[in-house]
């Protein structure tokens, strides 16, 4: 990649406020560093990944509304986590977390357990139990 070819496509999500460093070749064939404001193929990939997450959040929300899952799954998706990441944050096994996705089990959870989840999601226990969309 030549220095003049370093892409400056303004990743629209960051709006040019965040410039990364690229390595490129100058006129004399020497390697130099050059800032880049973004590159369209990468921006598309990033925004697709974010759309994917938003879809997962929406799907989880519908599941909770249909009483097929508990708010824990919804907030897990909001925080871009999966079961194993969430489990390690709350210090439980994967199967325990999955069990807490069941609405009936969730209703019977102790306050202490709810607090653990709430703390990880950075919300109050009320917000967790009376999920506000």
């Amino acid at each position: 990649m030549k220095k003049e070819e370093v892409p400056q496509d303004n990743g629209y999500l960051v709006k040019g406020s965040f410039r990364e460093l690229c390595y490129a070749v100058d006129k004399d064939g020497n390697y130099v560093t050059e800032h880049t404001t973004g590159w369209t193929p990468k921006t598309i990939a990033l925004s697709n990944a974010i759309d994917e997450i938003n879809e997962r959040v929406e799907k989880a929300k519908q599941k909770v509304l249909a009483n097929q899952s508990s708010p824990i799954e919804y907030f897990m998706e909001v925080n871009k986590m999966d079961v194993s990441i969430l489990a390690s944050y709350v210090g439980m096994w994967n199967w325990q977390v999955k069990r807490h996705f069941k609405p009936l089990v969730f209703k019977k959870l102790k306050l202490k357990t709810l607090q653990k989840y709430a703390e990880v999601f950075e919300i109050t226990t009320e917000e967790l139990t009376q999920m506000a969309y």
């Binding site: 990364e20 460093l21 690229c22 390595y23 490129a24």
Partner: peptide
């Protein structure tokens, strides 16, 4: 397509210097 996007994201992710670290290695 999601997986394909992942290949490119990992290749051009922040920190790679572009081209999946190949340019840094050339330097």
């Amino acid at each position: 397509n999601h997986y394909l996007g992942q290949i490119v994201r990992m290749q051009e992710e922040i920190g790679t210097g572009g081209g999946g670290f190949r340019y840094i290695y050339a330097a």
